[in-house]
Design a protein around this nucleic acid. Structure first.
Lengths: 314, 314
DNA sequence: CTGTTAGCGCTTTCAA
DNA sequence: TTGAAAGCGCTAACAG
């Protein structure tokens, strides 16, 4: 680590001035092709790479962004992060990871650290309880995942479309008594929107809704699925894979057999219960979009778009 | 982000010189208590925090480390990383995350990026196929997880102890026909060592071993468990939770009921199959130790220890 | 087109 | 115990 070369060295080795090297480094115009080639050759040969800190100090950005997930082991967030990372590396950004554990105070704490570090941007996986006030300072440099907020860029899933297409599929299979296992309305996207889409479909098709909204945890699916099982029920729609996993454990234990459907399409689900009908909310695409949006935002002041990822029935 | 104060501002505001502020900042001796207090008060009040880049440029470290996991969704690695993060933040380090996807070339690529960034240290979750040559330049600044290598610090799990205590438990429950589902020997720790510990126990207690070593994936557990099911088999020991998950799906589908045991104790396992006997390899503790070791290494040239985390039967 | 010259915010001599 | 001054590696005027 010690004897890294500097532009000064490169300048000396290629017989030019520091600034010329700098120009080459930044692909600035105003350097003769010959000089540029020569300098590039030297850099190449010496394996030169400029000091990030020095560039950062010169007002350039640090090229560091943070990704704040709710939980490291969230199946869905993992899928999104998995596509974010390569996207960020490719653009030369270092992604630092933080875990909010669904705790608004932790988010605040983390954002505080990040503010102090003068980071370029943040991708935050939203959840219930984050006050917009805390986010305010980040308006220009944050992309919210799975959450919308006025004045913020965001990448959301198509909750309504996902639920509707699952319902349509179940309906077309002949199911007329479809129960719903979801998340409380305090969660606007996964909770409220998915529930409403379910209700809307029921209404439109004259079905009688039967609902429980226990929460996001597998255990909650397990413990509350019984509440929505009527004798006539033939299918169960779950707001998330995790919930479906919990429910299906219960169903298995109780020998109840009904058609399950859920929003998620996570690998775990596909393996454990391939018979479940799923819709892929487009986690991978969401990750890609989030990175594009964030980088656009911080480098070229792109406008704060609210992106919705279309889901695809599996 | 723009108008961050600098030590110059703090100096002015507290009526001292830049260097004094710097001394206070670094807790250097040679500053009168009065002056120090005054400066600290101003910093506090202005919410001053020094520029990382400037410090880094002055030869201080960047305070950035990388964590390279095999997969973002590895149940076990998640548990370790979960304790690493807070440990790192607390020491002022930023953890950047990378995913190797079990691909040695990706590791090489990532390490290349990191070298260029002049990072402080790396925590690398090992796997089969990483050539030690690639790691060589990182000897002093790397901690290997779940893998040992000559000249490298590492944090490993007590493979032998874990398997032995599970076997002892099964044995004490009266099981005498215990099969083993594991990982090929190319994986020295999870593969070879666990398998050997199983064989040793069998030998010592006069049991007839029955083994398959398909690999790490859930699907492999599912597909290969049948090979080790003899009519007399009453228990099955799996080298990992993931494998056990696959196996138990098969067993469930085939109505076969035997006592399962596995190394892992991941939340998913505990939820889906609480009846399985597990041993906790100490992932959380491993994460803590890895951070301590790495930071010790890079800040005070602590010697490269090879740490083994004791496992605990659940 | 290219080199020289100032700094960016900090640490680190070196004098006072 | 302190402050002034000299850089760290880089970029950005400003001259040639």
């Amino acid at each position: 680590m010690q004897n890294r070369l500097t532009i000064k060295d490169i300048a000396r080795l290629s017989g030019v001035g520091k600034s010329t090297v700098s120009r080459v480094l930044n692909n600035e115009s105003g350097v003769s092709a010959r000089t540029r080639e020569r300098v590039e050759a030297v850099m190449q040969q010496e394996g030169f790479s400029p000091s990030r800190s020095a560039r950062a100090m010169r007002g350039q950005s640090d090229k560091v962004v943070a990704i704040i997930v709710t939980r490291l082991d969230s199946l869905s967030e993992n899928l999104a992060v998995q596509t974010m990372l390569p996207g960020l590396y490719q653009q030369g950004y270092d992604p630092i990871m933080m875990e909010s554990q669904f705790d608004p105070e932790l988010v605040e704490e983390h954002l505080g650290m990040l503010k102090r570090r003068n980071i370029d941007g943040v991708i935050l996986f939203g959840f219930t309880g984050i006050s917009e006030k805390i986010l305010q300072p980040w308006q220009a440099t944050m992309v919210l995942m799975a959450r919308e907020a006025k004045g913020f860029a965001s990448v959301c899933y198509d909750d309504e479309g996902a639920i509707t297409s699952l319902m349509a599929k179940l309906y077309s299979q002949g199911h007329r008594h479809i129960s719903f296992l979801g998340v409380p309305h305090t969660d606007v996207t996964t909770g409220l929107r998915r529930h409403e889409a379910y209700l809307a479909f029921c209404k439109k098709h004259g079905l009688t809704p039967k609902v429980a909204l226990p929460g996001l945890a597998m255990k909650q699916g397990y413990e509350h699925v019984a509440e929505v099982l009527l004798p006539e029920t033939t299918a169960l729609l779950c707001a998330t894979d995790t919930l479906a996993l919990g429910a299906s454990k219960y169903l298995q234990e109780h020998q109840a057999s009904l058609q399950l459907a859920s929003v998620g399409n996570t690998p775990l689900m596909k393996f454990l219960h391939p018979e479940i009908i799923t819709v892929d909310p487009g986690y991978a695409e969401a990750g890609r979009q989030a990175v594009l949006q964030l980088i656009g935002q911080v480098t070229q002041a792109r406008d704060l778009r609210q992106i919705v990822i279309p889901s695809t029935l599996q």
